[in-house]
């Protein structure tokens, strides 16, 4: 959280992760170059560059897509999730090198515009197997550019979290385009069985990770709470929530965090406005609910970030009857003040 924008919100952890990303990328590229020239001394440098950076970008894309479900299945992966943006931008840069070199090598020397040439050099748009695979790669690169260039918090703030998240869901379209780009390319250029096998294994791994994570989440979300006559849900005993911490409950498909602060209970929407971090897994620091991901803060009683910040989340009404905490599943608008209720402890 800040009152101005910084180049990168670096801290010691992030610097370590960034160094690891760089080290990993350089190691892969060096290995790729050495192995390529050892196995095929006649190969030209441009071809190796295109292949090395292209395959690097695809491996990184798979890692990026696996981080989300992995961190939902096992919290030990969470630190990777906080640093996913830097991995994304690095992946785009690798893909960009691949794209630029491919366009230079295959399309730059003609008398037509190289970009036009990408689209017109193979006009077999009606065929599936001979479909111009370079076009697919070009479109994927465009999507990745849009995502990488808007990964700064400035865009999250200015485009609104909804549009930003929607824009960044484009990664799935990019993934599909990239898979078909490599798949068709593998058949049209050198019929590499290994490449196709690796793609398939990658796809199966990613899909099964996402399905497992989704099933786990569905189990949490599927719990049916007992209701009172007004439709309020009985979620827990007041003493089950520790002072300065929260418990998370799913009401009507949305997750809500019930916090205990100075012995009183307040309920807010569990999703941080910054990057969707789980507020209920954070704690109350200096009187504010503090997101465990990047430290964005909210007041528990009204879901508002303390001035001068402007983030707001939805709030919910609570009551205690017969030693049970009841929550009204109908949320109040974002930032609505609700008087905290005494938990009697």
């Amino acid at each position: 959280m800040g009152l101005d924008y910084k180049w990168v919100l670096w801290n010691a952890h992030k610097k370590t992760y960034d160094r690891l990303i760089l080290l990993g990328m350089v190691t892969y590229l060096v290995l790729f170059f050495v192995l390529s020239f050892l196995t095929n001394p006649e190969i030209i440098a441009e071809t190796v560059i295109i292949r090395a950076f292209g395959s690097l970008a695809i491996i990184m894309l798979h890692i990026i897509l696996a981080i989300g479900p992995l961190s939902r299945l096992n919290p030990r992966f969470l630190p990777l999730l906080y640093n996913r943006r830097h991995l994304g931008v690095s992946m785009f840069l690798a893909a960009l090198v691949h794209g630029v070199f491919a366009i230079i090598q295959f399309h730059a020397l003609g008398n037509s515009n190289p970009i036009v040439s990408v689209f017109t050099s193979n006009m077999d748009y009606g065929s599936l197997v001979n479909f111009p695979f370079q076009v697919l790669g070009f479109l994927a690169l465009l999507i990745l550019f849009t995502m990488a260039s808007t990964s700064h918090d400035f865009f999250l703030h200015n485009l609104s979290p909804k549009i930003w998240k929607g824009l960044h869901m484009g990664v799935y379209l990019a993934y599909a385009l990239v898979i078909m780009h490599v798949f068709l390319g593998a058949f049209q250029q050198d019929t590499s069985f290994l490449t196709v096998l690796a793609l398939f294994l990658g796809l199966i791994t990613l899909v099964s990770l996402h399905v497992r994570a989704a099933l786990k989440e569905a189990k949490i979300d599927g719990f049916v709470w007992a209701k009172d006559t007004k439709g309020w849900l009985a979620v827990c005993h007041p003493r089950e929530i520790a002072e300065s911490y929260a418990k998370i409950f799913t009401v009507d498909g949305e997750r809500v965090a019930i916090f205990k602060h100075e012995g009183k209970l307040s309920a807010i929407h569990n999703v941080c406005k910054h990057q969707g971090g789980p507020l209920g897994e954070g704690k109350i620091v200096d009187g504010c609910v503090t997101c465990p991901w990047h430290g964005y803060q909210y007041l528990a009683h009204n879901g508002q970030s303390p001035p001068p910040f402007t983030e707001k989340v939805k709030t919910y009404a609570l009551k205690i009857e017969n030693d049970m905490v009841y929550i009204n599943p109908e949320a109040f608008p974002e930032g609505t003040a609700v008087t905290p209720i005494s938990s009697g402890s």
Binding site: M169, L203, D221, V271
Partner: peptide
């Protein structure tokens, strides 16, 4: 993630699982 995003992710992955292998098989058959 909010509920809507979770739902969107579910449908997107089902779509990827069905569409991509189908396209691959159709392309090489």
């Amino acid at each position: 993630m909010i509920a809507g995003q979770r739902r969107a992710h579910k449908y997107i992955w089902i779509g990827i699982l069905v569409l991509l292998p189908m396209l691959m098989i159709l392309a090489v058959k």
